[in-house]
Design a binder for these strands. Structure first.
Lengths: 245, 245
DNA sequence: CGACAAGTTGATACCGTTCAACCTGCGTGG
DNA sequence: CCACGCAGGTTGAACGGTATCAACTTGTCG
């Protein structure tokens, strides 16, 4: 075995890269600084590079002809963006705040993969983990109500913290509410209302708009599974009282 | 280049397999016949094999603690099931009707990948395409209304036919309405109503319950992008008249 | 400090869900 | 071969969660 089980997707990819970069890829790599809201690439752009996020955070999203937007992921520092084999990117990548990325020429990257089996295998592993994440997202969007969706989103960030040795109860949100909304298939308003319901329910504390404390993990875990209010505590399926008008 | 651009994901995987199977994998492979509704594996089962669907159709799905189900994909004859590196399957695979699968020992499969770079690379390619499909699903569930979702589902099957040289306007549905519903994040009732609306709108013809003719492709394409009824033909966003009570 | 983006809260509408009754058609067994 | 049975599918009526549109507040950055 490779002894990488339990590692983060970005960790795996980083290992994969370090293998390759040492030889060739990173000798050719360029840097790029992105301003807030600037696109790294858009849907249909030629796939020339695979990107490595050095700092900042980007949103990956797709759009419908009518303008509706689905965020399919967030890329944090240490993540790779742009795995895939098609000639064009099938989604958009946009910097949320300011960020810096490294650009690894795709050709070099793939040549390496064809030369070093372990490298290709790690690419496979990394993609496989992204796939699992995408399936989880589908489960969230399709089957969780707004409360369960927001709860599972917060828990996802919590687990991410945990794996990096950061306090799992202190969640910093680099993205605006509308991104969370478009990620979860909701609207900004609904996300906002859900935050305040979790807040008044005592499950979270919102220190600042982009900084959340998880104060009742077990309850959040239950909510995320749609088990909130088994006894329908307040007459609502998720056991949280609606804010009175 | 490898000259596989534009190939189907299952075609790619088949090539990948044929490369490997010829040497070792398939000499160890066993067959398995599944009855209707029988599970190939369930969430949490140890990942011992990678499966190749020889005949029939399976649904892949995940569930929430409260019992709600999200279908994350359908596996048709020629597809592989079970790519991934974790110790356990993160979803369930259940036969829809009767089906037959071949079981390829995971160890052999992965050893091969580490020996033959091109094989590992093809695994990477195949997973990459599955990932793109999962992102499309998220877009559908999160942003398309019931009409757009059903339209894009039919068009997906249509494109699939096209790539296999089958008439793209004749869609056979191996799965029940409830599977389509749980795939699109809807209910069986809503899918059923949407079918009849498309029917009375003249966009499809339902020959038998599981056999659909696409009679107005351009309109379906517009609907799938949420552009249906730009002029709101019937006063509804999707341009299709609701069935009066 | 001042302007504008981001976030919150409110009122209302509506799409999809839910629960229920009723068809339909396919496979099975008498 | 037909009739039965039942899963699958359709249709109906009402409810409700989330979207939508709008006003207002907050806070962040230049």
């Amino acid at each position: 075995m490779l002894g990488v089980a339990g590692m983060d997707i970005e960790d795996k990819a980083a290992v994969a890269c370090s293998n390759g970069c040492e030889s060739t890829a990173c000798t050719h790599c360029t840097q790029r600084a992105l301003a807030a809201k600037q696109h790294l690439f858009t849907h249909g752009d030629e796939q020339r590079y695979i990107y490595y996020v050095h700092s900042g955070c980007l949103r990956l999203y797709k759009t419908l002809g009518n303008g509706r937007r689905q965020v399919i992921g967030f890329s944090f520092a240490g993540d790779f963006i742009g795995f895939g084999i098609g000639p064009e990117f099938p989604y958009n990548a946009q910097s949320i705040g300011r960020s810096e990325v490294r650009c690894l020429p795709r050709g070099t990257f793939h040549k390496l993969a064809l030369e070093i089996p372990r490298f290709a295998f790690r690419l496979y592993e990394a993609t496989t983990l992204e796939l699992a994440a995408a399936h989880d997202l589908a489960l969230t969007i399709g089957q969780r109500n707004s409360t369960a969706a927001v709860a599972s989103f917060l828990l996802w960030l919590s687990r991410r913290n945990e794996r990096r040795g950061v306090a799992p109860t202190t969640i910093s949100l680099p993205m605006p509410r509308t991104d969370i909304a478009d990620y979860l298939g909701l609207t900004g308003e609904t996300v906002s209302r859900t935050f305040t319901r979790l807040k008044v329910g005592g499950l979270i504390r919102v220190t600042r708009k982009r900084l959340v404390q998880l104060t009742d993990m077990p309850a959040l875990l239950e909510l995320a599974e749609g088990m909130g209010g088994e006894r329908e505590a307040f007459g609502y399926a998720d056991g949280l009282r609606r804010i009175p008008h």
